[in-house]
Design a protein around this nucleic acid. Structure first.
Lengths: 151, 151
DNA sequence: AGACCTATATATAAACA
DNA sequence: TTGTTTATATATAGGTC
């Protein structure tokens, strides 16, 4: 796109490829940021380099956007892969988190309070919270996998 | 950026904002697509317009990237929000999802099997799965909020 | 709403520090 | 690696249809 028009195909030279990845990733994050600011939108960008490194941008936060996306997904709005656009249906009068109250999810994991599997989040240590968080990620994957089987 | 230099701030006019959102979203997806092709990378972009519409791009697929991100996240690599970069540590010789087995997260929600709060995912109906999924989203937010308090 | 236009702002490949 | 520099390709604001 520049000194000479380049074809959009895989760069073979490893060093060059990584340099381009870094530059373009920065550009991509900047574009995402501008989109959020200018349009008061929410967006998340997640990238993995070929080397396996992860980079993410999110506004208001990566997790916030992913959670919202998950809830949309679960509610039926599909997400195209591969450069195509998504829904864009009618009004879509916003998404509300169910109702915030009364949810008492507890975790019983071999590594996590075997005897007392009903601790409240407010009473957990950081270590316990992190374990619960990981357990939930795993559970999430299982639930989604199971849902797909039933659809 | 164009006929005249524009400030990167919120566009007040609703129609204009939406037009810009559409154009910039298309540009963002294109950039993401080019990054993937040129650098053989994986990337996902998720956006929500102010109106609440969801749009997503992913290579090789939105879900593939999100799943990979989840596993990274659970394994400790943090994800900055707000336009900043992520890890980029040493070799990062790939990521494996912990080990899939032994996790027995259960949900007890007023709307979800009050009497039996220890159902296995494999035995749940679609409706129950969706409720559990929503409950987990909510729990996730609470856990993260609590973590932030402790950090 | 979209599709096209066009002038200008940006992004960026290549080279080098 | 990370940051220049520079020439050129793209993206896009503001129109028009």
């Amino acid at each position: 796109m520049v000194r000479t028009k380049v074809e959009i195909k895989r760069i073979e030279d490893k060093a060059k490829r990584h340099t381009t990845f870094t530059k373009r990733r920065q550009g991509l994050f900047k574009k995402a940021s501008e989109l959020c600011k200018r349009c008061n939108a929410e967006a998340a960008v997640i990238t993995f380099s070929l080397a396996g490194n992860a980079f993410a941008f999110g506004h208001p936060s990566v997790n916030a956007v992913l959670a919202r996306h998950n809830s949309y997904d679960a509610n039926g709005q599909p997400c195209n892969d591969r450069g195509s656009v998504d829904d864009d249906d009618a009004e879509s009068d916003a998404q509300k988190v169910p109702e915030d109250g009364g949810v008492v999810v507890v975790a019983s994991n071999e590594d996590l309070n075997d005897e007392d599997d009903d601790m409240k989040v407010e009473e957990m240590s950081m270590e316990e919270l992190e374990k619960l968080d990981s357990a939930m990620e795993e559970m999430k994957r299982k639930v989604i996998a199971q849902m797909k089987l039933l659809v």
